[in-house]
C-alpha cells in the first residue's frame, strides 16, 4: 500500500494497481495478439498466452472486487490478419462480467492494431485521462500538471546476487509525481531501470511486492 497523488493505492504482485477508493484496477501493456502476430509472420509461438493473461485478470478482478478496469495502453500488440478468434475470446470473457467498466488509454501499439469491436464495450481514450487529481497516460509525460500513472516502459529491476550476477524481475517505478507500471502481458519483454534517490522500485514477483533498496557504497551481499 502506498500514497500517491494524495490517494491510497495498492501495488499488486500480479503487476496491477488497485485503487480501492475508486474500486478500480489499473493495468498496462497487455499486448494481446502478440503471439498471433508472431505466428502470422512465420515465428512459431504456442497458443495460450492470451488465455493465461485473461485468467490472471479474472483472478485480480475477483480478488479486488473492482468495478472498473483501467488499461494504460498497448492493450493490443498490433495488426492481426485474422483477429476474429482473439476478439471472440475477449468477447466471451467480457460477457462473463457485463457490469465491469473498461477504459483504454490508447498506446502506440494500439494505434496500429485492428479496430476494437463495439461488443467489447471498451471506452477508448485517445488522450490521457484525469481522475480525481491523477493523470492516467500510456507514455510517461514530463512536466505534467498532475501526478501521472503510466506504462509503456515495461520496467524491470536487476537484482544483484552474492556472486555478482543479476536477475531481472518486473517492477513498479515510483517517483515523486510519476508511477510506471510493469507490463501485464505474459509474452512481453522488459527494460532494466535503476533506482535512485528520486526513483523507488518495487519488484512484483512470486505473490508479493517488495521495495528495492538503493545500492549502497559496499555492494557486498551481506551489507
Amino acid at each position: 500500500m502506498i500514497k500517491f497523488g494524495g490517494h491510497t493505492l495498492v501495488l499488486d504482485p500480479d503487476r496491477a494497481v488497485h485503487w480501492p477508493e475508486q474500486r478500480a484496477l489499473i493495468v498496462a501493456d497487455l499486448h494481446f495478439g502478440k503471439a498471433a502476430i508472431f505466428r502470422q509472420n512465420g515465428l512459431p509461438v504456442p497458443a495460450g498466452t492470451t488465455a493465461g493473461d485473461l485468467f490472471k485478470l479474472t483472478q485480480l478482478l475477483d480478488r479486488t472486487q473492482a468495478s472498473r478496469l483501467l488499461i494504460l495502453g498497448d492493450c493490443f500488440h498490433g495488426y492481426v490478419n485474422d483477429p476474429a478468434p482473439m476478439h471472440e475470446q475477449l468477447h466471451l470473457w467480457r460477457c462473463a462480467r457485463p457490469r465491469l467498466t473498461i477504459d483504454l488509454i490508447l498506446g502506440n501499439h494500439d494505434r496500429r492494431a485492428n479496430s476494437i469491436p463495439d461488443a467489447l464495450s471498451i471506452t477508448v481514450h485517445t488522450a490521457p485521462l484525469d481522475l480525481d487529481g491523477i493523470t492516467f497516460a500510456h507514455e510517461p509525460i514530463d512536466g505534467a500538471a498532475r501526478p501521472v500513472i503510466c506504462g509503456h516502459i515495461h520496467p524491470t529491476a536487476s537484482l544483484r546476487d552474492f556472486d555478482g550476477q543479476g536477475v531481472r524481475v518486473p517492477c513498479f517505478v515510483i517517483e515523486q509525481r510519476r508511477m510506471i507500471l510493469p507490463a501485464f502481458g505474459r509474452f512481453t519483454g522488459g527494460c532494466a531501470v535503476a533506482p535512485n534517490h528520486e526513483r523507488q522500485l518495487y519488484v512484483a514477483a512470486q505473490g508479493r511486492v517488495i521495495p528495492v533498496p538503493l545500492p549502497r557504497r559496499s555492494a557486498a551481499w551481506r551489507a
Binding site: D161, Q165, V167, V169, V203, Q206, I210, P211, P213
Partner: peptide
Amino acid sequence: QTVRVENASQRIERMLKRLEAAA
C-alpha cells in the same frame, strides 16, 4: 563461465527474502 544450480524461482525467492530483510 559460471554454473548456478537453483532454478529461477528459487533464486528470485531467495533474493526477495533478502530485499524483505533489507526493507
